[in-house]
Design a protein around this nucleic acid. Structure first.
Length: 939
RNA sequence: CCGGGAAAAGCUCAGCGCGGUUUGAGCACUCGAUCGAUAAUCGAGAGGCCGCUGGUUCGACCCCAGCUUCCCGGACCA
């Protein structure tokens, strides 16, 4: 390169900036995070929002067990989008994160860690171990979430195991009790008779087991003709099959499927009602030589029929249930509500008592709740020993038609490995019909805004059909059900004053106080049993369902303590929470506050892998958030979350992340280009009023205004993927491909302080100022970095996260209406530009030109376009990035583009071809405009 | 099996509350340009039985029904 070229190059205003091209996110993000921490940025944001209208997103507590996964990361990032965008839209939007700390999964993990030691430990010691376990993961998860750039009150989150929260849970229970929602009832649960304990689903293991299966007949005692005329006067029986003969004493009903076809089969005089499709198999099992069908009818006919228990003095009614199947048995299902979950729920529907004559040891006793006294042979016998006794009784009465051992998988206790049983135990319930709770909840659902709309139907269906809420668990790690029982008569003590006193003690000492103190200490002086006047009590040992804990979060958190209001504006969780948190929170809200704790409820989808399948640890197809932050940076993970339509299931894969990394680079380079061309631009003095800018620079500002409008609206509607696409398309198309490319010549070659260059810089500055803020909720790290490199206007805070979104009128404010109208011309010129670029491409393919600046473009156009092109002829070379543009006088109908070699020679400074090279003797190698610029620079 | 949801270029998304020309964008891809945004930038091109099958209609990606696959919750297995 000749010496004078070097000299000329120095006079070109090339970009320079400290904003690096390479982000190095995994290294730079933690630095920014610690800076934000030191500066207490979240608190600054809170202070800056004082007095604004409030917008409360109430955080659903993740379970404090294990590290975060992509699902929880996705959830938190989405919440952060909402909180940050609401804040920047002018709301006071605090974010108080929380954790769900009680419950079985933790207790089981701790159990496993403690092993045999647990037996020697007191409940308080076990609870302490659970608390420590939960604390560990609260801290780990907190760090993980903060690493993602989620802003919030991390130094004071809500924990369901804190004393205050536990007291709130207990208080909520007491209120439910006081208002009359709570009752004590029986419900079958997995029960280990050796350990004398209820077992959760997670605590039973299925192992092979041999059971004595039996076919038993129940004679019909109601009018057979009502089932079918052909049965009048016949000896009709229902025929049931069961693998647990010992539950026959607890039989209370016989269930039929409402839509299946049944036949009444004559077997040597006795008539048996059996599902049509199971007749053949049943005949084989029972050894019937001949079974003649007398009648056929649908199961619905059997509802209300009465059958006599084979050896007890009571009748079992015919009922209808969808759970009856045709896979095994007879299609007539022995129903013992005290010993089976489905039997129980169908029993509830028919108002059949949950009768359970088996005690905690698994032995029979004379229980209340059903007619017919058990034979003394059974009393005191364990259920396993009772099997032969029952079959013996059945055989004696001629009720046993067949018996056959069956090997099947059967639930066993995970501790002692013994087979378990289903046994009705006393449980606490919240009655869905009490005070019309169900109906009121359904009404309330209609008032909530659901995003997406189908959420309403989904939760309504669940609430409409759910059974009463069983809120008790036979566990240690949780909030105790704070009820006492009279030692004398067993009556529960539910005196509100006493229970309120307990709540206070929990608030002061955590719920451990329930286990540390005696009943007498907790009750205090002066309490007496309402029934017998007794003054000595024992404590309830059950704890509350953890869904009750988290369902009460709105009571514990949306209050003064956290500076929040009840109800919240929004809940946002994955779709599994219709069964969980959305559900329990609504019931607690409607029950205790007569309204939903959320005005809006948004759902996001599940995170799936590349093939669209669920990720699970057992399949080993998971990607950890930490992996992504370490390899790509949290910003890329956030862009991933932003680019997805979150209401549907979303996918993640290496390919997707690679794309996003590239998109990230493009966005970053957009900022870099703008910042690189602004080092000598002081917005306080160098800005040109919009009305005095070049039209093309006005045009890009108006485009920016449209972008602002769109983005603000889409943030408001939580359509983050549309914000992302809008921002990204704007950066790639409007800016990189068009505006930046076109103004490059002016920025580089015009005199630094010329109006032409300052006009472009003004647009660059203003659009960057807007763009950085628009993108801040999605990309908090990079926008903060860019903001730091952008010169501030008076009033601009140090952090972009303390700013508001740009107003739609911000970029081109001061532009007169007439000027705005003129910009429509530029929209019309854009298609012309596209055609010119195509023509240049053809010329390039033909090797007629290389760089576009070697070209002169000759246009001819029809009547419509010609005047416009003529008007803007001066601007066209810049817009097309060619050296010259000529316009043919005889206008053709359609636009035609001809590419010619540019006239003159190449200016060594601006590289455009010109006939004015050497015009200025002082600068012989440059064109006339360049010499002018050079003179200006030297002056 | 029941309740809810989803299916469109390789990827991420528009579009279709009001059915009507060959369905769009960006990225990725291919080819080319540039070497003054340079581990950047610009241009052009090629990619789609709009999951399948029926129906309504003069006409369907769009409306209706059924099916297939996937996801969430529940039931069953127990």
């Amino acid at each position: 390169m000749p010496a004078h070229d070097l000299e000329l190059k120095k006079t070109v205003n090339l970009p320079r900036t400290d904003f690096p091209m390479k982000a190095n996110l995994p290294q730079t993000e933690p630095k920014l995070l610690s800076r934000w921490n030191e500066e207490k940025l979240y608190e600054q944001i809170r202070r800056s929002c004082a007095g604004r209208p409030r917008y409360v997103l109430h955080d659903g507590p993740p379970y404090a067990n294990g590290r975060i996964h992509l699902g929880t990361a996705f959830n938190k990032i989405l919440k952060d989008f909402i909180v940050k965008s609401k804040t920047m839209a002018g709301f006071d939007s605090p974010y108080v994160p929380g954790w769900d700390c009680h419950g079985l999964p933790i207790e089981i993990k701790v159990d496993a860690e403690l092993g045999g030691k647990k037996a020697e430990m007191s409940p308080v010691q076990v609870r302490l171990a659970c608390r420590k376990y939960a604390e560990t993961f609260v801290h780990l998860q907190s760090e993980d979430f903060q690493r993602l750039g989620v802003f919030g009150q991390w130094d004071d989150p809500y924990l369901t195991m804190s004393g205050a929260y536990q007291a709130q849970i207990a208080e909520a229970f007491v209120e439910f009790l006081d208002k009359g929602y709570v009752y004590k009832g029986l419900k079958p649960v997995h029960w280990c008779m050796r350990c004398r304990t209820a077992l959760a689903e997670a605590e039973v293991e299925y192992e092979p087991h041999a059971s004595p299966s039996v076919w038993v007949r129940f004679p019909l005692v109601s009018d057979a003709a009502r089932i079918d005329g052909a049965l009048a006067g016949r000896r009709v029986h229902a025929l049931i099959w069961t693998t647990t003969p010992w539950t026959i004493p607890a039989n209370m009903a016989i269930a039929f499927h409402p839509r299946y076809e049944y036949v009444a089969a004559d077997v040597s005089g006795d008539v048996y009602v059996v599902a049509k499709d199971l007749l053949k198999e049943t005949a084989e099992k029972c050894g019937w030589a001949e079974a003649k069908a007398l009648a056929q009818f649908s199961g619905g006919k059997l509802e209300g029929a009465l059958f006599r228990h084979p050896f007890l003095e009571r009748d079992s009614g015919g009922i209808l249930a969808d759970h009856v199947t045709l896979e095994q048995g007879t299609g007539a299902v022995h129903t013992a509500p005290g010993h089976g979950q489905e039997d129980y729920s169908v029993g509830q529907q028919y108002g059949i008592p949950t009768y359970c004559p088996v005690d905690a040891d698994g032995t029979f006793f004379h229980a209340e709740g059903a007619a017919g006294r058990l034979p003394e042979d059974l009393i005191g016998k364990s259920v396993w020993d009772a099997n032969p006794v029952v079959t013996g009784l059945l055989r004696e009465r001629g009720a046993l038609l067949a018996e056959k051992r069956i090997d099947h998988s059967y639930p066993h206790c995970w501790r002692c490995r013994r087979p378990t049983i289903f046994r009705a135990t006393e449980q606490w319930f919240i009655g869905m019909e009490r005070h019309n709770l169900r109906q009121r909840a359904l009404e309330e659902i209609k008032r909530i805004k659901w995003i997406p709309a189908w959420g309403e139907e989904r939760l309504s269906n669940m609430i409409a059909t759910r059974p009463d809420w069983c809120i008790s668990r036979q566990r240690t790690w949780g909030v105790p059900i704070t009820v006492f029982y009279c030692q004398g008569c067993g009556e529960p003590l539910t005196d509100r004053k006493v229970l309120d006193g307990v709540v206070k003690q929990i608030a002061a000492h955590t719920a451990d106080v329930w286990y540390e103190k005696t009943a007498a200490e907790l009750v205090g002086a002066g309490a007496a049993c309402a029934r017998c006047g007794g003054t000595s009590f024992r404590k309830e040992t059950d704890i509350l369902d953890v869904w009750f804990d988290s369902g009460a979060s709105h009571l514990a958190v949306l209050n003064q303590r956290y500076g929040l209001d009840w109800p919240s504006d929004l809940y946002l969780e994955a779709g599994d929470q219709y069964r969980g948190w959305f559900h329990s929170s609504l019931l607690v809200g409607v029950g205790l506050r007569r309204a939903s704790p959320y005005r809006e409820c948004a759902t996001h989808g599940w995170v799936l892998n590349r093939e669209g399948q669920a990720m699970s640890k057992s399949l080993g197809n998971t990607i950890e958030p930490e992996e992504i932050t370490q390899k790509y940076g949290a910003e890329v993970l956030r862009l991933w979350a932003a680019s997805m339509e979150f209401s549907e299931d979303v996918r993640i894969s290496e390919t997707i992340l690679a794309r996003l990394t590239e998109a990230y680079r493009k966005l970053r380079n957009t900022f870099r280009y703008a910042l690189g061309n602004l080092p000598d631009f002081d917005p306080a003095v160098d800005q040109i009023p919009a009305g005095e800018q070049l039209e093309f620079d006005q045009w890009v500002l108006v485009r920016t205004e449209q972008l602002i409008e769109r983005c603000r609206k889409q943030y408001e509607e939580f359509e983050f993927h549309k914000v992302y696409q809008a921002l990204y398309n704007f950066a790639t198309t409007d800016l990189s491909a068009i505006y930046f490319d076109v103004i490059k010549d002016r920025l580089y070659t015009a005199a630094p302080r010329s109006r032409a260059r300052r006009s472009a810089q003004t647009s660059l500055y203003r659009l960057t100022h807007a763009l950085v803020r628009l993108m801040a909720p999605l990309a908090p790290f990079t926008t903060e970095e860019a903001w730091g490199h952008l010169r501030k206007l008076p009033g601009d805070p140090a952090s972009v996260h303390l700013t508001l979104f740009p107003e739609p009128g911000f970029p081109a404010g001061g532009l007169a209406g007439r000027q705005r109208e003129r910009l429509a011309s530029w929209e019309k010129l854009m298609p012309v530009r596209e055609q010119v670029l195509k023509a240049l491409e053809v010329a390039r393919q033909e090797k007629f030109i290389g760089a576009p600046l070697e070209a002169r473009v000759r246009l001819s156009a029809g009547r419509e376009l010609y005047p416009l092109l003529e008007e803007y002829l001066e601007e066209l070379p810049a817009l097309f990035i060619v050296s010259q543009v000529a316009l043919d006088d005889h206008a053709t109908a359609a636009l035609a583009v001809h590419v010619e070699r540019a006239e003159g020679s190449k200016c060594e400074r601006c590289w455009k071809y010109s006939t004015s090279i050497g015009f200025d003797p002082d600068f012989p190698a440059v064109c006339q405009p360049c010499s002018g610029a050079l003179r200006e620079m030297l002056a």
